[in-house]
């Protein structure tokens, strides 16, 4: 069991560094950010209290809502494309019939550790109107990055490319955690491969699916690197994410109050998603 010590102070010394960092670089800033949300502050002169003006501004800021739409779109793609695809990929990677499994795994997992900047720059070239490989293969000069509707495509492609492996790692771990006896029992009952998938695999993967969905959702709501490099948020904000908008207001226009208020909205959104997740977990007893 738990170990008691004669030196009662020791555990506090052990956790002290973590808490100092935590307080100064996470919790403190969070409170700070909350407070600044109610100020008008350009960073040079003293902040001026302006109550709910920032939040009211956000409520009627069409660019903000456009960035929300884009971000939700990125989230939706991640949830409804990346998650199912990665489940299928994990099944394949787990299958004894897959040839060259180690190589395949390396290929699909490597994107996880690749620099977002490097890969976004590469995709920027792949999608280039004039000399990009994509247009070369399609045979038509499509202006991917310059069109308001099409510019979302390259961003989404990078998201799928980068996250597919990550989510399949989780699914793979989940698959490997399933008790083999469950399959054997199903086999004895005469279940086909398909039936076994639906009656054993899917239900057993429910907790992990849930977990993966939350990670993906929360991660995609904070997306920044990919659209920042690929399109800079343009054209006409068509690809700008919420975090990109926060960055624009905060660090190119020096509106710290307004940027913090955007952060506050983002935090509330993410925290409520997380809370809903915890609630659902408890209820379904996952």
């Amino acid at each position: 069991m738990m170990r008691t010590t004669m030196y009662k102070k020791t555990p506090y010394f052990f956790i002290l560094p973590a808490y100092v960092v935590f307080l100064v670089f996470m919790f403190g800033p969070m409170i700070f950010s909350l407070i600044v949300s109610f100020f008008n502050w350009t960073g040079i002169k003293s902040p001026e209290f302006n109550g709910l003006d920032n939040l009211k501004g956000i409520a009627t800021d069409s660019v903000f809502w456009l960035s929300v739409r884009n971000t939700l779109l990125y989230s939706a793609v991640s949830l409804f494309v990346v998650v199912p695809l990665s489940l299928l990929l994990a099944l394949a990677l787990d299958s004894p019939h897959l040839r060259g499994r180690l190589v395949v795994r390396a290929i699909y997992f490597a994107p996880i550790v690749t620099s977002t900047v490097a890969i976004s720059q590469t995709f920027m070239m792949l999608f280039n109107t004039n000399f990009g490989l994509i247009n070369r293969m399609l045979g038509v000069p499509i202006d991917w990055l310059g069109s308001r509707t099409l510019a979302l495509v390259p961003v989404i492609v990078v998201i799928i490319w980068r996250w597919l492996g990550l989510t399949s790692i989780y699914f793979l771990a989940g698959l490997q955690g399933i008790d083999r006896e469950l399959y054997d029992a199903a086999k004895v009952d005469g279940a086909t491969t398909m039936q076994r998938f639906f009656s054993v695999t899917l239900p057993q993967l429910r907790p992990i699916t849930f977990f993966v969905s939350m990670i993906i959702l929360i991660g995609s709501m904070q997306i920044f690197d990919e659209p920042q490099i690929l399109t800079g948020g343009g054209p006409s904000n068509a690809t700008r994410s919420v975090v990109q908008y926060l960055y624009l207001r905060g660090f190119t226009q020096f509106r710290f109050g307004y940027a913090s208020a955007i952060g506050l909205v983002l935090f509330i959104a993410i925290a409520s998603f997380s809370a809903v997740q915890m609630r659902l977990r408890k209820e379904s007893d996952l």
Binding site: M30, S33, G250, L266, I270
Partner: peptide, 9 residues
């Protein structure tokens, strides 16, 4: 806590 909200502070 999402990291992006910490960048201003």
């Amino acid at each position: 806590i999402p990291f992006p909200i910490l960048v201003v502070p």
